[in-house]
Design a protein around this nucleic acid. Structure first.
Lengths: 236, 236
DNA sequence: CCATGTGAATGTTTTCACAGCT
DNA sequence: AGCTGTGAAAACATTCACATGG
């Protein structure tokens, strides 16, 4: 078993190199602090609740009280925040204003993001007119539709363009976020056009599984699935 | 330590009774086959994909191929289905039609459910006019709004009623599912009225954490949170 | 031989529980 | 004295891998 270097077969040497490579990876100093996506998805609710508290004049809150308002456990809030740093004061709790600002910075909400919307039917209309965008960091910067009589319309200073303009306009404006509100049959094509234009985050309202390249983030808005999964719990 | 029954203090006896009660629960023969909610929430996508396959004339599918279409692992699909029974044929796969029908029965989609919608602004409008309800098991049976000039309008045979009618109408029609599309400030009150009328499943579009009694199922539709959680992954 | 259904292993998320700081 | 931040434990979810049956 005491093989020296010259005795090694090529295979043995290869396996040895692989093992060392793995060892090296394992020893890596900063093992990339991967933050679970499920934690990221909870942060917006923390922001919203912290804003509500400030509107009520509350300047400080404990993880216990915040948890009560949100309907989760205090330990979960503390663990979630611990992925990003130490934002609380022991014995005191968290400053609502400071914590809100810190989480907004983590989610990169401390700047404005242009958004492209494709699909200007009744759903697209509701999205475009939704004023909940306003206090947030998103600005509707482009709207696309396939229907000729929608094209040219002006919505808060944004002209509805033909779907064929999708890739070009998104690239020209440097838009990174796309919202898909077209029928299922058109959604994949729209997604491809958006990605071709440089979009790396897609909010999809169409009831279809989108195929996207690595590195493009996707969130689904699927009320029918939500309803269907609730019916399970109803009494017969 | 060898205390007999007559020596016991009331507290000791109480604790003993509690312990025995717990032991009894632990010994329970059928330990209630609790199905994880996360499994329930995946079933609608399986149904949708199985419908699509049938539309394409595909009558049989393996867990491997189904997984590829949905973007999950084959093992996950097989595990999910195993909570409910054995629906496949070894060496063959699953009948798309049979599996679809079985999952629909599990989710109680093999009957029609009346739904109440509160909030008839642009969002409520988009929901009410959404034709994706049609091939599904849901029928919009009541619409409520606060705004006087919306009340009385007829939407596909359903008259928009004043919000004050919520509890009464829901009770009278036996509606179990409510959709909340009102502003955040009104959402809790609407939820309370719906629950008072007998609703046990709520689809909430308002950006607020609802407080609901045990036994009421809740799903959130929150596009702003979805956007905010995607921005995290964008390049600066 | 192929693909399901499922014990066992692995990976992830939540919760416990408490040391330590204010 | 009170509440955070976090190791360690527990609970939960996913994936592996294969015996089993058509």
């Amino acid at each position: 078993m005491a093989a020296n270097t010259t005795d090694r077969s090529e295979l043995t040497a290869l396996l040895e190199r692989r093992r060392q490579a793995q060892d090296h990876v394992a020893i890596e100093p900063d093992p990339i602090p991967v933050i679970p996506d499920i934690v990221i998805r909870r942060l917006p609710i923390y922001i919203r609740t912290l804003r509500d508290l400030q509107d009520q004049g509350v300047s400080s809150v404990s993880s216990e009280d915040l948890a009560g308002l949100i309907g989760v456990t205090a330990a979960q809030i503390r663990r979630d925040l611990s992925y990003f740093g130490r934002f609380g004061k022991q014995g005191k709790g968290y400053s609502t204003r400071y914590l809100q600002q810190r989480i907004e910075a983590i989610l990169k909400l401390d700047r404005q993001w242009d958004v492209a919307l494709s699909g200007f039917g009744s759903l697209g209309n509701a999205i475009a007119r939704y004023r909940g965008f306003e206090p947030s960091s998103y600005r509707l910067a482009a709207i696309f539709d396939h229907t000729s009589d929608q094209i040219g319309q002006d919505i808060n200073g944004v002209r509805v363009q033909d779907t064929s303009e999708t890739t070009g306009t998104i690239r020209r404006l440097g838009i990174k976020i796309g919202i898909i509100a077209v029928p299922a049959s058109a959604a994949q094509e729209v997604a491809d056009q958006m990605v071709a234009g440089g979009v790396t985050a897609i909010l999809n309202y169409a009831p279809v599984v989108l195929r996207l390249p690595e590195g493009v983030t996707l969130r689904e808005i699927d009320p029918i699935s939500a309803l269907q999964s609730m019916t399970f719990y109803l009494e017969d």
